[in-house]
């Protein structure tokens, strides 16, 4: 009698354990589904490598210098669906010396490309503000192409509380 009870208890416990594990798995799947991104693990790992590749496509093996770029980013973004950002590249913006293009990437988004902005001397100032989507905490990478061919790069992290990859 006693042993039978023990077995029963053990079985119940086992059932509970499995139940809990199933529940965890379900919750996990649910969270992914709720994000609605259908992100495969390969896509999720694209991160920094994809940015490096995108950059290589643009500038080849040239090494961008540090400086000139100011990233005005929030330290923490509560809602990844719309994160306000501003980027400025220091330049006199004359015919002889101006910023031609500014490229932005978010290294852990399902697709790291964010945008490219092209300026002219008539821009007067190479500064932009926009709102972007961020799937999770990650780095914003900026690359500036100057009229004389020189390149500058900057990188900064934004902490994201709720991802904005769809949903």
């Amino acid at each position: 009698m006693q042993t039978k009870e023990k077995t029963m208890i053990r079985k119940t416990l086992e059932a509970q354990r499995i139940g809990r594990r199933d529940l965890m798995a379900m919750l996990g799947a649910g969270a992914v589904a709720a994000m609605g991104i259908g992100m495969t693990s390969r896509e999720a790992q694209a991160d920094a490598k994809a940015v490096a590749e995108a950059m290589k496509k643009l500038i080849g093996d040239k090494k961008p210098a540090a400086g000139k770029i100011t990233l005005d980013l929030p330290q923490i973004a509560e809602n990844g669906r719309t994160v306000p950002i501003a980027v400025e590249v220091a330049s006199p913006m004359t015919d002889a010396d101006h910023v031609k293009a500014l490229h932005l990437w978010a290294d852990k988004n399902p697709r790291p490309d964010v945008a490219t902005f092209r300026f002219t001397p008539a821009s007067g100032k190479a500064r932009i503000s926009t709102r972007i989507r961020l799937a999770k905490t990650q780095n914003i990478v900026a690359l500036a192409e100057m009229s004389d061919g020189s390149l500058y790069m900057a990188k900064s992290e934004i902490k994201v509380t709720i991802g904005g990859c769809g949903g």
Binding site: A115, R118, G124, A126, R127, I128, T130, R131
Partner: peptide, 19 residues
């Protein structure tokens, strides 16, 4: 000019400067 990817939020806001 600007090229946008899906990482630009819904109802895109774009501010820039002109001389």
């Amino acid at each position: 000019t600007s090229d946008w990817h899906p990482a630009i939020s819904a109802n895109p806001y774009m501010a820039f400067f002109v001389k």
